[in-house]
Design a protein around this nucleic acid. Sequence first.
DNA 1: GCAAAAGTGTTTATGATACACCCATGC
DNA 2: GCATGGGTGTATCATAAACACTTTTGC
Lengths: 249, 249
Amino acid sequence: MYSYHYPHPAVTVDCAVFGLDEARPASSGEDARRDDDRHGTTPGNLTVLLIQRDLEPYAGAWALPGGFVKIDEDLEAAALRELGEETGVRDLYLEQLGAFGAPDRDPRERVITVAYLAIVNLFDHPVAAATDARNAGWFGVDDLPALAFDHERIVAAGLEQLRATVRDEPIVFEFLPQEFTLRQVQSLYEAILGESLDKRNFRKKLHATSLIVPLDEVEMDVAHRAAQLHRFDRERYEALRAEGYRWNA
Amino acid sequence: MYSYHYPHPAVTVDCAVFGLDEARPASSGEDARRDDDRHGTTPGNLTVLLIQRDLEPYAGAWALPGGFVKIDEDLEAAALRELGEETGVRDLYLEQLGAFGAPDRDPRERVITVAYLAIVNLFDHPVAAATDARNAGWFGVDDLPALAFDHERIVAAGLEQLRATVRDEPIVFEFLPQEFTLRQVQSLYEAILGESLDKRNFRKKLHATSLIVPLDEVEMDVAHRAAQLHRFDRERYEALRAEGYRWNA
DNA sequence: GCAAAAGTGTTTATGATACACCCATGC
DNA sequence: GCATGGGTGTATCATAAACACTTTTGC
């Protein structure tokens, strides 16, 4: 038992992990109705990683991965640890979202949680396997089940921060595999911002940054002209940002 | 005594309260050297509200106002309460900055703090009076003493968020009295952004928002032509933001 | 009358938007 | 040969930036 002169809240971390559910390049058919006036975009869907709780409270409900912070553990380390334990996801982009601490957000005791925004690419981390007994899975952000605690609010805050961050930092590339097509980048922006973008203008802006380098390869196994592959020039980006760089896409 | 099966950290709130130390309009002389090539700006100085600690650890050191969160108290309520108790400042703009929780940031025990960014105008809250025995005072952001704990990092994060927020929200008016001159608004932007702005372009943009209404009054007791007073049209702002408004000044 | 800050428009440059056709590939 | 998405440029519009003189007031 651990005793204190004053009551102490418990502190947890929770991770809103976003990924991109890429429409598989090969399967062109499936439910391809309203294709008439689409501006030529195959949208990927933005998804969130959830786990199914097997303990009370909210046993059986879906929730963000997370858990209690150890007493000598850094907050970010705790977030990474819990995420790894519960979903097997490691090596990802992480950014603090903020603290959520409404007095009644957990029925057991006062629990203050520090939420993190995380981004993975589903290519390096294909459909996360839960190393834990619980179920884990990806859900489209527009199609979430009811969530435990105040996790819906945390997801909403995560989405908002994602949208805000995407406007001045090229974090989108955290979603993508090392080699990607410009089409994928555009679909990703469209999925995050929730609006469709002009293909030519988008590519113009992308190229203007000089952060995207074309490779001598093209995508494969597509039923149409293959797209050029590109990679993100991380070194150049680091160099530019060191001297105060603004992205603004 | 309060006992738990697992160790619990303590949770505090800290407030980075920013104010504007207006160069008093009347006193034109005092140390007016390098006035030659100034673009015609009398800069106000951005300041932070600090209290002097009278208890260990860091007794005698300056620190951000803050303290422990009560077990059933909302985080924001705790921030407001501590701020009122320690500095007498109430009724202000408050926004969460984030959680700071390095394991060794407090020598006593594990303490995770939730930091808030706050803005006051020094006209309605003139040089905060500490209702507590401790000392409280305003310090220029470029001229801070050594701070207790990791409060320097919190101030830095606050400044950064202030700069970021000012770009899309007209929160600057939280710094100003109800009636102000355009000159004051510009000085404030200059103080926050740390760069000098073009007078004509700045006023053009201000007027374009239609959020500033001129009054039939001018400032008084100045040794030169008196400036028109204006007020911020809060109703119009609320109406505009309700339908998705972007400020971007 | 002079010092000190208030007030006021136009021109130029830059970035954002709108827009339509040909090309390569797989079937 | 046709369906599917890949790839490309220009003209227009809107916003940002640069820039200097006259006006009012107190002393």
